[in-house]
């Protein structure tokens, strides 16, 4: 009887703890929309779960500054999902797709950045926040001929993430619009 009660308690604890742990890790958003992919002229599809990120971490070099920064960035993450579609002509994709993504966001998701432009790109950035901690990130970027969505699951340092671009040898954009190159001064 005592053993039965102990087992029952353990089962109940597991039933309570598992969803809490899962939600603390952030949630994966469904980014797969075959209709948009079919119209795109170029597609970038990155799907990296926790196991693949750990594997990638073993192959990222400590000697290369870009890779070292990336390695630090992915430490603790449980998923990175990117879908980027490029189109030949403007207005070739359904802009309501961004809403289809937004509707999946739960109450813990907060919009932290919204940039609207009639001619350039609209960027929305959402953070999945638990207390002070950010446990997930969603970036939706809609340009006339390009649509990109990024979902990162796990603790994200926004400053570090934004700072990576300069590290990856891509110019930092300064206020006067002139590029200032990153550490290697090389172009991709």
């Amino acid at each position: 009887m005592t053993r039965f009660l102990a087992n029952l308690m353990l089962t109940l604890l597991a039933a309570i703890a598992l969803p809490v742990t899962a939600s603390a890790q952030g949630t994966r958003i469904n980014l797969d929309f075959p209709d948009i992919a079919a119209k795109a002229s170029e597609t970038v599809d990155v799907t990296l779960d926790g196991a693949m990120l750990r594997l990638a971490g073993k192959f990222l070099s400590n000697n290369d500054a870009d890779e070292r920064a990336a390695k630090e960035m992915i430490n603790g993450l449980t998923g990175i999902y990117v879908r980027s579609y490029e189109f030949d002509h403007e207005g070739e994709y359904d802009k309501s797709i961004a809403n289809r993504i937004r509707t999946q966001l739960g109450p813990t998701w907060k919009k932290i950045v919204k940039v609207s432009s009639r001619t350039k790109e609209d960027v929305d950035i959402y953070a999945d926040t638990r207390g002070d901690a950010i446990t997930g990130l969603l970036i939706i970027s809609a340009e006339p001929k390009e649509f990109t969505v990024v979902n990162i699951i796990g603790p994200v340092d926004l400053e570090k993430l934004a700072g990576l671009e300069g590290q990856f040898g891509i110019p930092h954009i300064t206020r006067d619009g002139h590029g200032k190159h990153g550490k290697d001064e090389h172009h991709d």
């Binding site: 990117v82 990109t148 671009e165 891509i170």
Partner: peptide, 18 residues
Amino acid sequence: ARREVMTALHIASSKMRA
């Protein structure tokens, strides 16, 4: 996986900076 991490972080970072 290494290449995909670099691509994904590059895209995410460029959108953040934009």
